[in-house]
């Protein structure tokens, strides 16, 4: 526990994170997590994903409640627009991961945050997914995240927090580096 009281409060329990880091350094097998989602087709391009269970710290774990996410495509794709497009959920995942990191890193560096907002833009040439041009990839041609941050810190310190958050972000790693993906039918 912290012996000195920090006046900075971004709501992140840094002591607990540092404690977990120390404990998992000694017991690295506990650091092996598995994240899961299930997805059910509803109708058309509309599907609903549910997230509740995961594995970590050596045992099965559970979110307090089940979270569900509807995904669909907008009407310009002749869909019914019952949810965000899956590619938009990826952007939400990236922005949420980076923003959580900003809060945690700022807390660790004793920087009080007042407001943080991120705008994420990702370009895509849909000639790829429509199969018009095989040289165009299906995915984004780039992602741009723009942060607006009001905090008790210099612009340089804020930039350093944002940079460090990228360095420690799982979703940033997932979208910037290749990952082997296996899709099977059981």
């Amino acid at each position: 526990m912290a012996t000195t009281k920090s006046p900075v409060d971004n709501g992140v329990n840094v002591q607990a994170l540092l404690g977990a880091r120390a404990a998992l350094t000694e017991a690295p097998e506990g650091a092996k997590f598995q994240w899961r989602a299930t997805c059910k087709w509803v109708y058309g391009t509309h599907s609903r994903s549910s997230i509740q269970q995961y594995f970590g710290l050596g045992q099965e774990q559970k979110h307090k409640t089940e979270f569900t996410f509807d995904a669909d495509h907008p009407e310009v794709f002749a869909s019914e627009d019952k949810g965000a497009a899956p590619v938009e959920l990826v952007l939400a995942g990236l922005a949420s991961c980076l923003t959580a990191g900003v809060a945690a890193v700022a807390q660790h560096r004793e920087i009080q945050l007042h407001a943080v907002s991120a705008t994420v833009e990702a370009g895509m040439d849909i000639q790829g997914i429509l199969g018009i041009d095989s040289e165009v990839r299906n995915g984004f041609d780039g992602i741009k995240v723009t942060y607006k941050i009001d905090a008790d810190a210099t612009p340089e310190e804020i930039k350093a927090v944002v940079a460090q958050s990228q360095k420690r972000s799982a979703v940033y790693d997932i979208v910037t580096n290749p990952t082997n993906v296996t899709v099977e039918v059981s």
């Binding site: 340089e156 930039k159 350093a160 940079a163 460090q164 990228q166 360095k167 940033y172 790693d173 979208v175 910037t176 580096n177 290749p178």
Partner: peptide
Amino acid sequence: AQFSGSLRNNCALADLKMNR
């Protein structure tokens, strides 16, 4: 060969660190 899309951030981190 596949390369990470993190080049920009790695360079930003290094610039910030040098300035410190």
